[in-house]
Amino acid sequence: MPADAAHPTLSWNVAHDVAQVLEYHFMVNALLAGSVVAVMAGLVGWLMVLRREAFAGHTLSMMAFPGASAAALAGVPAAWGFFLFCAAGATAIGRLSGPGRRASWSEQSAGIGAVQALALAVGFLFVSLYGGVLGDLESLLFGDLLGVGDGELLLLAAVAAGTLAVLAVLGRPLLFASVDADVAAARGVPVRALSLAFLLLLGLAVAATSQITGVLLVFALLVAPAASAQALTARPLASLVLTVALGLAVVWLGLGIAYFSVYPAGFFIATVSFVLYVLARVIAFARGGTRRDRQPADAPARPAGVIA
């Protein structure tokens, strides 16, 4: 007999526990949705971390607030407002952060910060215009992974498939432009266009996933697995595989723990991903200790006056 859903009990029999979890359609949907998100967010996030655009990703996930409140005001489904604001946010960030990656770091983050502040302010305005309370503000922030319907799951899978297909086509030039913009541009890679395309892709991924997992959660899945994998290996293929594996582990572990607990799934998913990230950093630090004592001996030493 499976345990009653209201009082699930954890036994030492793992197979039994797993069977118990899979007994329920909502848990199967949650696991499937979580897995799709883990794969999509992981891969998009891998590039985001490599491009050092985590702040842009964070800002795009914040677009959920003005998006949802605008949608409520206009009386359309929240998803519409969400996609619209994510696309607008991505375009604004792409414009503000200058040609390629040449804009200075602080300049870029200042621009993104300005976009974020404006987005939140606009969302606030929409809420007060709407006059009512945004009913599902909590599910907007923290998601409702356990309430994913079959239709939503299908839509999510479609968006993920599209995102990954575009990513596969852009793959190599996007990687080139991300790590080595100058040389890529000289080779005819459209660095600027790729930069904007990536932000739009990021926006799409964020919008689609935070519909289901919540704004805060998508970010946990976007950053932590990719950052952990990159800390552990510099081999691109291994790093990508590890990112997806870590993402899946985070979602499954988080949901599994949540099932046997009274606390929300989002908390456990975010916590597991944070713990994995800290572990990865500790391992990388322990391994890197031997290398780091090498001196990069490249102090520019030019005798004054010798300029021929």
Partner: peptide
């Protein structure tokens, strides 16, 4: 990447 980084796809 210098060899084939400008080719589309993976």
């Amino acid at each position: 990447l210098g060899l084939d980084g400008d080719r589309w796809g993976l």
